[in-house]
Simulated assay, not measured.
Amino acid sequence: MIKNVTRIIEKSIGKIDVRYDMCISDIEAIEKMSYSKYDFITNGFRFGYMQGLKAARAEMKRNGVINGL
Rank of each mutant, 00 (worst) to 15 (best):
M1D: 06
M1L: 09
M1K: 06
M1W: 07
K3P: 10
K3G: 09
K3T: 15
K3C: 08
N4E: 14
N4K: 13
V5W: 14
T6H: 10
T6L: 15
T6E: 13
R7E: 12
I8Y: 07
I8A: 12
I8C: 05
I8T: 09
I8H: 06
I9G: 03
E10K: 14
E10Y: 09
E10T: 08
E10Q: 12
E10R: 13
K11V: 07
K11Y: 15
S12R: 02
S12E: 01
G14A: 11
K15V: 05
K15T: 08
K15I: 02
I16N: 01
I16R: 01
I16Q: 01
I16T: 08
I16H: 01
I16K: 01
D17M: 04
D17Y: 05
D17S: 08
D17L: 05
V18R: 11
V18E: 14
V18D: 11
Y20I: 04
Y20D: 02
D21V: 00
M22H: 06
M22Y: 08
C23G: 07
C23M: 12
C23T: 10
I24Q: 12
S25M: 04
S25C: 07
S25W: 04
D26E: 07
D26C: 08
D26Q: 04
D26A: 04
I27K: 02
I27N: 00
E28W: 04
E28S: 07
E28G: 02
A29Y: 11
A29L: 13
A29N: 15
A29C: 11
I30D: 00
I30V: 15
E31P: 01
E31T: 12
E31C: 14
E31H: 13
E31Q: 13
K32R: 14
K32C: 05
K32Q: 12
K32Y: 10
M33A: 13
M33Q: 12
S34I: 02
S34R: 03
S34Q: 05
S36M: 03
S36C: 03
S36H: 05
S36N: 06
K37V: 07
Y38Q: 13
Y38A: 11
D39K: 02
D39A: 10
F40M: 09
F40D: 00
F40I: 02
F40P: 00
T42E: 15
T42L: 15
T42W: 14
N43E: 10
G44C: 11
G44D: 01
G44K: 02
G44A: 11
F45W: 01
F45T: 04
R46I: 12
R46V: 11
G48Q: 00
Y49A: 10
M50N: 07
G52Y: 01
L53H: 08
L53V: 13
L53R: 12
K54L: 08
K54D: 04
A55M: 07
A56Y: 05
M60F: 05
M60G: 11
M60D: 03
K61H: 08
K61V: 06
R62G: 03
N63M: 15
N63D: 15
N63E: 15
G64E: 03
V65F: 10
V65I: 15
I66G: 01
I66R: 00
I66D: 00
I66A: 03
N67G: 09
G68C: 09
G68Y: 13
G68Q: 12
